[in-house]
């Protein structure tokens, strides 16, 4: 399976931090600043959302980001311009829904989208509405152009399904920390530890997302055995607050940078913990 060196390298350190923002939220120019702030804060990989009108896997925070971005004129073509305009060195992963990938370009199927993404240096994709069963054509196109295809593993995924996904995944596996949709929560799900232990036999890096909000959550997730932490809604919340309060872009970017720093430091702290105690850390982080 073709693998993108960039993602492998990004996960080679102690604990990777993978923030998500919707491209173009709330405007093209502001969003460029915000994504660049993530890199300054210590992001190892950035998941960049290309908004789809029917985001069925997203909670209200990211649904609203999608609306802001679409109203700001974001389209797949603009998204590629956005990627081209971005001044960041960390690998970028495009998170979007299958219909946008499928419809892009003149040829039927996902190939034109993947070809374009590859030409701009994107490293891979996460497609929340594309389970392993339907992923064949996209996997093929990713192999052709040397991009990674990240799959989500849910708390309900086990047995043959898990094997089928892990046969196709590359880059990293997105471990969905809890059932449901995206959105910041006040605790770390105890489903995470069980999910991570099901994945132990595979070498691919394991990044945990869904509901993670603080450096302390990030620490607990990494201490439980994750190789990386994915955070979206808690960062999108900062963008939304800045937008609503009409905060200067530089100020919101600074808040994003410091939040990213907090989450990255949390992840690193988790990686530094004594492995003996790592199994118990999750329970300690539950709210009291």
């Amino acid at each position: 399976m073709a693998e993108n060196e960039a993602l492998n390298e990004a996960f080679a350190g102690d604990a990777a931090f993978v923030p998500y923002l919707a491209a173009g939220d709330p405007s093209y120019e502001a969003s460029l600043e915000y994504v660049e702030a993530l890199e300054r804060g210590g992001a190892d990989v950035i998941e960049l959302g290309l908004p789809f009108s029917e985001p069925i896997a997203e909670g209200s925070t990211i649904q609203e980001a999608v609306v802001r971005s679409l109203e700001g004129g974001m389209t797949p073509e603009r998204f590629f311009e956005f990627v081209d305009d971005l001044d960041v060195d960390v690998p970028l992963v495009c998170m979007t829904y299958y219909n946008l990938i499928y419809q892009y370009g003149d040829d039927e199927g996902p190939r034109p989208f993947v070809e374009k993404a590859a030409s701009l240096g994107l490293s891979g994709f996460v497609v929340p509405d594309l389970p392993a069963e339907e992923a064949g054509p996209l996997r093929e196109a990713c192999d052709e152009f040397g991009l990674d295809l990240v799959f989500i593993v849910a708390p309900t995924t086990a047995g043959d399904r898990l094997k089928r996904i892990m046969d196709q995944v590359s880059g990293y596996v997105y471990v969905q920390a809890r059932l449901g949709v995206t959105g910041a929560k006040d605790d770390v799900s105890d489903q995470t530890g069980a999910s991570l232990s099901r994945l132990r036999e595979w070498d691919v890096p394991k990044a945990v997302g869904f509901g993670i909000k603080t450096g302390e959550h990030a620490r607990a997730v990494v201490a439980a055995g994750a190789d990386g932490v994915i955070v979206g809604s808690a960062l999108v919340d900062i963008v939304a607050e800045g937008h609503e309060a009409d905060t200067p872009v530089a100020e919101t970017a600074e808040r994003l940078e410091s939040k990213t720093h907090e989450l990255k430091q949390g992840a690193l702290a988790g990686a530094g913990e004594d492995p003996e105690s790592r199994g118990e850390s999750l329970a300690e982080s539950e709210p009291t």
Binding site: I56, A57, Y98, P128, D129, L130, P131, A132, E133, E134, F151, I152, V153, A154, P155, T156, T157, A158, R161, I165, Q176, L179, G180
Partner: peptide, 15 residues
């Protein structure tokens, strides 16, 4: 046709 849904739903769809 097909089954284009989030992974979290796939076990339920198999069931």
């Amino acid at each position: 046709g097909g089954q284009y849904v989030p992974e979290a739903l796939m076990p339920a769809i198999e069931e």
